[in-house]
């Protein structure tokens, strides 16, 4: 049981770290797909099947496509100068900050006694129950999330749309 979790963790952390260290953005985006698929595998391992499939649909399917489109639309031409290597001191400072946070969190986790019932079987939450909860006590939140998604996606289209020609003539 723990072995599967450790394997999934190695997959997630390894692909995430390599993706953030690479220079090639397309390789990074494809490695992020692997990382998100690993997180979906973690959800399956934990018994949250509905969340795992939502993760596959939204992250592995949709967000990765949006990221790939953004990478391709903002690609520098080969004639352009290559991206300057990030300054070493900035990377070291980021590493110190991240390492500090990691040390504090790991110390807190390892130092806390957690007497939870780990021996129990995996809880089962059927899709019917989730739907009942979404439509019952959380109906207002569901409506607000739908409105938020609509507004955010319309705003994304407006922001990314090309300016009208007369506007650019005015600006010039």
């Amino acid at each position: 049981m723990n072995l599967a979790l450790i394997l999934i963790s190695v997959l997630i952390l390894g692909s995430a770290a390599v993706a953030l260290a690479l220079r090639n953005l397309i390789h990074s985006a494809l490695l992020f797909v692997g990382c998100w698929a690993g997180i979906a595998a973690f959800y399956l391992w934990a018994g949250a099947e509905f969340v795992a499939f939502a993760q596959v649909l939204i992250y592995v399917g949709a967000v990765s496509m949006v990221v790939l489109f953004a990478v391709l639309l903002t690609r520098q031409s080969d004639a352009a100068e290559p991206m300057n290597p990030d300054s070493f001191s900035r990377f070291m400072r980021a590493l110190v900050a991240g390492g500090g946070v990691a040390g504090i969190l790991v110390g807190a986790i390892l130092g806390t006694p957690m007497d939870v019932s780990t021996a129990g079987p995996a809880p089962t939450l059927t899709v019917k129950e989730i739907g009942g909860q979404l439509m019952g006590p959380h109906a207002a939140a569901l409506l607000i999330v739908g409105l938020l998604l609509t507004v955010a996606l319309l705003g994304a289209v407006v922001i990314a749309a090309v300016d009208r020609p007369e506007k650019s003539e005015d600006a010039s």
Binding site: L5, S9, I12, L13, A94, G98, V101, T118
Partner: peptide
């Protein structure tokens, strides 16, 4: 296993932070 899950999420958070 709970501690392993929390360690995984902490390390993933720190990778994202860096």
């Amino acid at each position: 296993p709970l501690q392993l899950c929390l360690l995984l999420s902490s390390l993933l958070f720190c990778v994202g932070l860096v």
